[in-house]
C-alpha cells in the first residue's frame, strides 16, 4: 500500500517538476496530463472512485485540451530567446521563496502529532450516497456551482471573442 503511494508520489512530483521546467509548452502540457492522471490514480488508491473519474474527465479530458488550444493559439516564433539574467534572477528568487514554503510545510507535517495513526478499512462511499449528499444538504452549493460554470463559460466566450466582429456578409 505504502509502496504504491510512494511510487505514485514520485510519478506525480516528477512529471510536475519536469513539466513546469521544460521550455517546450506542448511537451509540458502533455507531461501535465500524466501528472493529473497520477493524481487521479492517487484518488483511486485512496478509495474515492467518483472523484478519480471526475479528475480524469475534467483535468485529463477537458482542461488539458483547453491548455493545448491556448498554447497553439498563442504560439510565438519557434526561436526561443536565450534565458536572460532577469529570468535566472527570478528563478533563483522563486526557488528560495518556494523552498522556504516547502521547508515550513514539510516541517509542519512531520512535526505535528496526528491522532489517527492506525489506517482503518477503506471507507465505502457509493455514487448514490454522493448524489444524495449533493441534492440534499449541499444543494445550494450545487446550484451556485452551476451558475458559476455558466457565467464563466459566457465570460470565457466574451473574453476570447474577436472584438471588432465583421458583419456576416463580409466574412463570406
Amino acid at each position: 500500500m505504502t509502496l504504491a503511494l510512494i511510487l505514485l508520489s514520485v510519478l506525480i512530483l516528477g512529471s510536475a517538476i519536469v513539466a513546469l521546467s521544460l521550455r517546450n509548452l506542448i511537451h509540458s502540457a502533455l507531461l501535465l496530463v500524466a501528472c493529473w492522471a497520477g493524481i487521479a490514480a492517487f484518488y483511486l488508491w485512496a478509495g474515492a472512485e467518483f472523484v478519480a473519474f471526475a479528475q480524469g474527465l475534467v483535468y485529463v479530458g477537458a482542461i488539458s485540451m483547453v491548455v493545448l488550444f491556448a498554447v497553439l493559439l498563442t504560439r510565438q516564433g519557434t526561436a526561443s530567446e536565450p534565458l536572460g539574467f532577469a529570468s535566472w534572477q527570478r528563478f533563483i528568487l522563486a526557488l528560495v521563496a518556494g523552498g522556504g514554503v516547502a521547508g515550513i510545510l514539510v516541517g509542519a507535517v512531520l512535526g505535528t502529532p496526528l491522532t489517527v495513526t492506525t489506517p482503518g478499512p477503506v471507507p465505502v462511499l457509493t455514487v448514490k450516497q454522493i448524489g444524495a449528499q449533493l441534492m440534499g444538504p449541499h444543494v445550494v452549493a450545487l446550484l451556485v456551482v452551476g451558475i458559476l460554470l455558466t457565467v464563466s463559460l459566457l465570460g470565457a466566450v466574451v473574453l476570447a471573442a474577436e472584438e471588432n466582429v465583421k458583419s456576416p456578409e463580409d466574412e463570406v
Binding site: 528568487l93 522563486a94 521563496a97 515550513i104 516541517g107
Partner: peptide, 20 residues
C-alpha cells in the same frame, strides 16, 4: 504579478517562522 506572489510566499514563511 510574480513578484507579488514572491512577497506573499516570503511573508508566509516569515509568519510561520515567527509562530514556530
Amino acid at each position: 504579478p510574480q513578484s507579488y506572489l514572491r512577497f506573499i510566499a516570503t511573508g508566509f514563511v516569515v509568519l510561520m517562522l515567527l509562530v514556530i
